[in-house]
C-alpha cells in the first residue's frame, strides 16, 4: 500500500466538511471527491486520514466508500479510460471501441499499462447516450468516438496535453 499523506489544503477542506451537515457521515462522499481530485485513487491509508479528519471510525468510512464504484482504488493508471458499454453505446459499436483501445494500448479491459499511464475499464451508462459511443477519462467525457478521435486522444494524453 502506498503511503500517501494528504496535502494540508486537502486536509483543511475535509476538516471543514465535518460540521457542515446535520450528520458527520454525510461528509464522507464530499471528502472522497476532494481526495479523488487530489490523489486520483484511494486506499485504506487514505480512508484512515479521512476518518480521523471527520472524527469517524475507519470502518464507518470504509463501509460506505466501498459501495461507490466511482472512486478508483490504488493501482489505477494516471488516465482512467472508462468506456460505456451499456445498450445505446453498444448499438453503435462500444464493444469494438473497447477492442480498439485494447489493441492500441496492448492491455485488456480491467488492466493497466506497465508504465502506469492508462487503465481501461468498461462502465455502465454515462448518461450521454445521444452521443454514443462515449468514454470518460478521469473527469472528462469524450463523445461520438471514432478510431481517428481515439488515436488523437491517446496521442495527446501521452504527450501530457
Amino acid at each position: 500500500m502506498v503511503q500517501v499523506m494528504l496535502s494540508e489544503a486537502t486536509q483543511k477542506k475535509i476538516a471543514k466538511l465535518k460540521d457542515r451537515y446535520p450528520e458527520k457521515k454525510t461528509a464522507i462522499l464530499p471528502a472522497m471527491h476532494v481526495v479523488f481530485k487530489e490523489v486520483g485513487y484511494y486506499n485504506q491509508n487514505i480512508l484512515k486520514q479521512i476518518a480521523d479528519l471527520l472524527e469517524l471510525s475507519q470502518m464507518e468510512v470504509s463501509e460506505t466508500v466501498s459501495f461507490y464504484t466511482y472512486f478508483p482504488r490504488e493501482g489505477v493508471g494516471k488516465y482512467h479510460i472508462q468506456v460505456c458499454t451499456n445498450l445505446s453505446c453498444s448499438l453503435l459499436g462500444a464493444e469494438e471501441l473497447v477492442k480498439y483501445l485494447e489493441y492500441k494500448l496492448k492491455i485488456k479491459a480491467g488492466q493497466t499499462t506497465t508504465d502506469g499511464l492508462f487503465t481501461i475499464s468498461t462502465v455502465e451508462c454515462l448518461g450521454s447516450c445521444g452521443t454514443a459511443p462515449v468514454m470518460q477519462i478521469n473527469q472528462t467525457y469524450y463523445e461520438n468516438l471514432t478510431k481517428a478521435k481515439v488515436d488523437q486522444i491517446l496521442e495527446d494524453l501521452k504527450k501530457g496535453k
Binding site: K25, T26, E63, T64
Partner: peptide
C-alpha cells in the same frame, strides 16, 4: 450540490437519502 459515487441504485429515492446520510445506498 451533493455528488454521488457511481451507483445506479442511488437514483431510487430512499437509497438517495441513505447516500446523503453517508451510508451505503
Amino acid at each position: 450540490v451533493y455528488r454521488g459515487g457511481g451507483a445506479y441504485i442511488c437514483g431510487e429515492e430512499t437509497s438517495l437519502m441513505e447516500s446523503i446520510e453517508g451510508n451505503r445506498g
